[in-house]
Design a binder for these strands. Structure first.
Lengths: 354, 354
DNA sequence: ATCTTTTGATAAATCGCTTTATCAGATGGT
DNA sequence: ACCATCTGATAAAGCGATTTATCAAAAGAT
């Protein structure tokens, strides 16, 4: 029983001091004048004065219960909310989300997916929406439970994803990064350095972000009139990638590698080093996006920067729009695609003359 | 109006299906059997079955309003909650807090102090306690508004500080780190290396953490029968510290420096380098605590590690105790002091023979 | 048999706020 | 003068829980 309800002024106090009914105060304070009821200028003034004098602020719990807005935004990650391992990856999103939320006067309710016992703790915990208390939610991370997201959609609960997300009805709102365009730029950069045969070292992931990157790589090839051959693609995890594979690529005439993520990029460099190859000299390398591994970027390779902080902010902005939208029947999702920043590194050089 | 109240089962549903009153269900679900009312084993069983079947979970807002517990913990920092600058400093606390909260089944409500317009956004915003919604709060960071904390105390709102905090009545609960003992160890380490005259380079801070460190430095000297002379202490910010001062210390016979924080430590090394001194050879250096500066530790100096994550966890544990304590009149604060870990570095060598 | 105690459970008030439905009085048209 | 409209505001019914006070039936005591 926290907070002895002591001296906190309540709606009733304001009403009494302003000599009006609670209903009137509520209407005025929520800007519902003219909608739910009519209130004269004079009365409004009087109410606001009392509010200021008392320092009245509505109790969020009561507000929520009564169907009002709680000025709370939920942030749901499908991992632990403060992942130690992916600290460098998630932190900027969170910073962006928090900044914008704060700007808009919202507080953040953090909800995590996994509890220590490895039991899933989900959005729908025991069937009840844990996000309920909040006005809306920002979803973050690689969700492992699409079903929950769909249910959320069905329930018309307002939420925005950070990162592009697909769904059967294509109606998920999100603030994403334009990996397609970013990948195109990377490939073009390699083309500009006269690389003809580029091997694409990809993950096995079927995540949207993964597919977008691949789409970009393919698109750039097509635009060049040089479609990406199937045998130039390798898929797997970093420790599955072996030197033989790289050697095979080189023998096929490959002069540059594109790694989908930094784990693969590191692996390539590691294998190459073992074989005595030097990076920009014997082969070029580009990586699709800044690192998600534990450490700070060790190599200054050619890559692009994901606008994580901006994505966080944008997601909150979209959510705000969604919430203020009075057209409750709107079907169109709210979306933004933010550009990535090309980062030239020292891992790309001109292809050797044939 | 988030979440169409649609299909979420409510207390009434459970009651109806179990053929009991709402009151009984509430009593059972909150473990108040025998306290508020008596309920037979059979009935309890029946209720739990319905609850499981329906997947019923209480609405946090309603729970809060009715005076129950919301299973939400507020985390209030007196800075932005995701400070970019002090990322390395704050993150571990947050991780610890979140871990333990999750373990206990609590969610986290993040509240920050400062909004973008530099207007203070405080615990008591407009006189209303923003923490209200939560069952209790963890307070974090260097508070600039002692008054708020005192008001919180008066209101008997349950909260625990991360880091030792003093107050007029000495009744603040906290999970702190034992800087005194840690500082003692550092000084003894220097003594063991035959350093007799040690200069203490301190901040101007009057924070508890700052005073504890100084207390430790003094204590170790006294235990050695060699009280710390006033003229061996320097106070100021890193950029106020000049080479002359260090030179003066050296001429007084100082063979080792203790820097209160890493900013001062870095400054000493920087000045020394300019003067052509080498660190372990010409003087020894120890730093009281791991870095709070932006970058990862650049130097492997002798210092101690603050158990930040553990402090976060412990703070939550203390808060849990506080909340479960039914003796509402308890006056004694809940406290823990966690030990720091001594980290030997390469910045301490034996003092030159006199 | 009668009175007291224990057991098991409920009715109803509350928490603080939102919203729907309703209403009295002022205004206006004819 | 009379009916229709507009204005300004309120009463009251929730929202989904918790908790206090109360009560009937069963068990125990004498």
């Amino acid at each position: 029983m926290p907070v002895p309800k002591k001296s906190q002024p309540k709606l009733a106090d304001v009403a009494r001091l302003a000599s009006v009914s609670e209903a009137t105060v509520s209407v005025v304070l929520n800007g519902r004048v003219g909608k739910h009821a009519r209130v004269s200028e004079a009365t409004q003034e009087r109410i606001w004065n009392v509010v200021r004098e008392l320092g009245y602020v509505a109790d969020p719990a009561a507000k929520t219960l009564a169907g009002g807005s709680s000025m709370i935004l939920a942030v749901f990650t499908f991992e632990t909310i403060f992942p130690i391992e992916h600290r460098n990856f998630y932190y900027p999103f969170l910073v962006g989300i928090e900044q914008e939320a704060r700007t808009q006067g919202y507080d953040l309710l953090l909800l995590t997916s996994i509890n220590q016992a490895q039991m899933g703790r989900h959005i729908y915990q025991n069937g009840r929406n844990r996000l309920q208390l909040a006005d809306g939610a920002i979803l973050l991370g690689a969700e492992n439970n699409k079903q929950e997201v769909l249910t959320l959609l069905e329930d018309r609960y307002p939420f925005v994803f950070v990162g592009r997300r697909e769904s059967p009805n294509d109606n998920i709102s999100y603030a994403g990064a334009d990996y397609v365009q970013a990948a195109v730029e990377i490939v073009n950069h390699l083309f500009d350095h006269h690389h003809q045969k580029i091997a694409y070292i990809a993950t096995m992931n079927i995540k949207e972000s993964s597919r977008d990157r691949e789409a970009g790589v393919r698109l750039a090839h097509q635009q060049k009139g040089n479609p990406l051959a199937a045998n130039l693609i390798w898929r797997g995890t970093a420790d599955q990638l072996m030197l033989e594979k790289l050697t095979a690529f080189m023998q096929m005439g490959v002069t540059a590698f594109i790694a989908e993520d930094d784990l693969l990029g590191n692996r390539i460099l590691q294998l190459a080093e073992g074989a005595g190859w030097q990076c920009p000299r014997d082969f070029s390398l580009a990586v699709l996006g800044d690192p998600l591994s534990l450490s700070e970027p060790a190599h200054t390779w050619t890559t692009f920067k994901i606008p994580r902080q901006a994505m966080g902010r944008e997601a909150v902005r979209l959510l705000m729009q969604m919430l203020s939208e009075n057209d409750r029947e709107r079907e169109a999702p709210y979306r933004s695609m933010l550009p990535c920043t090309f980062v030239p590194g020292i891992s790309v050089a001109n292809a050797p003359n044939p």
